[in-house]
Amino acid sequence: MSGSAAERGEDMRRRGDARGRALLDALLEGRSEPDLAARAASGLGLPERGRYVVAVLGAAGCGPAAVAMEADGLRFFRRRRGDRETVVVALGDRDPAAAAALLARWCPGPGGIGPVAEGLAGLGAARRLAEVALLTCPPGTSEVVRLEERLPAALVASQPELSARLVTDVFGPLLALDPADRALLVRTFEAWLECEGSAGRAAGRLYCHRNTVLNRLRRLERLTSRSLTRPRELIEMMLALDAFRLTAPQP
């Protein structure tokens, strides 16, 4: 008798878990059914108006096998969606950077994390923006990135036709160069940007003379017909660089 009651209890628990997961999937898909968020909160034991982030990973296989788990004061719910894995993180009062750090440690990447959703009803929008963040990861990389850190690249990645046009219009002459020559100019431009426009610091990073950096940048300006000293043209070149990174094969 007791064994039968235990089996019935276990069956009810499994069905309750399945209902909770189905409701979570509906939220991630952005459905607008009446009381959906409230029912999901009850089924999953989560606050309806809590703080959440959603991560979308380019490949399944994130960390331990459990669908739901807790770590460092955070609760994680994993869902497989096609060839990707979606992870919902209940933050509580924690900073989203804590969730990003754990996911980067557990997951092979690449992955994108959307902005904080203030309530379960916002999971659908958070998931869509996490997918945009994932698009900012160049081919062959394994990083897990937050959308807030990649907004310009996200703008470029979310408009692939305009992105391709930007690369052609701005970097067209650069694309005609020998690959090694092109890579040298691109890496010099990247280093100069990373060093906040300091040719001297970029030279130290590239193990060359400051004048070498300046000569390469001047050549880049000639090839693109744009000046690094004109803000609008510099913005075009930076966005074109983001677009180029997202489409260029990795060495």
Rank of each mutant, 00 (worst) to 15 (best):
R218K: 10
E85F: 02
G20Q: 03
P47R: 02
E29Q: 15
L120R: 01
V186D: 03
D72Q: 05
S2Y: 12
L246H: 09
N211M: 11
E196S: 14
R105E: 13
C208V: 02
L27T: 04
V156Y: 02
L74K: 00
L155C: 15
L28P: 06
R49C: 15
S42L: 11
R210T: 08
S4N: 07
P47D: 12
F189G: 04
A243E: 03
M1G: 15
F76E: 06
L177D: 02
P138Y: 01
R128A: 15
A240S: 09
R8D: 12
P110T: 07
F171H: 06
P64G: 11
S227Y: 08
V132G: 10
E148M: 10
V156R: 02
A117F: 04
D178I: 13
T136I: 03
F171G: 12
D242T: 14
R15S: 13
F77I: 15
G122V: 10
G109R: 00
P64M: 10
A130L: 08
P110W: 00
W192K: 04
T188D: 08
A183Y: 00
A203Y: 04
F244I: 11
P173N: 06
P173Q: 07
A60Y: 01
R245Q: 05
P231R: 05
A101E: 15
G92D: 07
A183K: 11
A125Q: 03
A248V: 09
S42C: 12
S158T: 13
A68V: 12
G82M: 10
G140S: 07
R19Q: 10
R150V: 04
R14A: 12
T247N: 06
D93L: 11
A65W: 10
C62V: 10
Q159V: 15
E236Y: 06
L175S: 11
L28H: 02
G45W: 09
R94W: 07
E118A: 15
R75P: 08
A37W: 00
D17A: 15
L129K: 06
